[in-house]
Amino acid sequence: MLRLEKIGKTYRMGDLVVPVLRGIDLTILRGDYIAIMGASGSGKSTLMNILGCLEQPSEGHYYFDARDITKIADDERTDLRNYRIGFVFQQFNLLPRLTALQNVMLPMVYAGYARGERRQRAQRMLVDVGLADRMANLPSQLSGGQQQRVAIARALVNQPDLVLADEPTGALDSRTGEEVMDLVSGLHQSGITIVLVTHDSGVAACTQRIIRLQDGRIIADG
């Protein structure tokens, strides 16, 4: 489903050119459940951002369903993010002024769903993640675990086939972290491809394939 060919990424900091990723070759199959691990600064978040079409690689090719996304317009990448990819962030990244329901509805606004359908699907999504009675709450009125579930509902609402999670349990205590991981594993069982970044080996143990990064290179895959 995803294929990375010799992906490299360098950042320019003033005069300094810092290589973050070097020659990454990676293939991700439909239905994979993958953890990317590595020390901080190993480039795992950058790799995640490139997989999520949030960032463009400096070199190499990235094929999403055989389409080279390094060669398509920004609007098309945006649309891919909108209905093929779901994001779950460490800091949840919910919009603070919107209720849980409105947050979940947001991707559908950009996808062009009709108002009634947006509401219906978002409600169903929130029920599925166990927040039936929290829909009208603002993020600030929810616990961390609840916020992350809202974020997961938001990631799933446009029925993506790839979910990217950047340290999904990083800001949660271990019990709620486990609950969230149960939810993520459930998604995998329903056929969604999942890639998560973590440095918690307990979290990585839930997955089926662990990719280790060091200094911008893949040092282990399996």
Binding site: M1, Y83, V109, Y113, Q159
Partner: peptide, 29 residues
């Protein structure tokens, strides 16, 4: 690759939906 069940994405329809959505949002902010 299986065909993805993409939702209807009519851009003109979207812009109108956006306006209806953005106005209350703007008011809110």
């Amino acid at each position: 690759m299986a065909l993805h069940s993409a939702p209807l994405r009519s851009r003109s329809h979207r812009t109108i939906a956006d306006l209806a959505e953005t106005l209350p949002l703007a008011w809110e902010s």
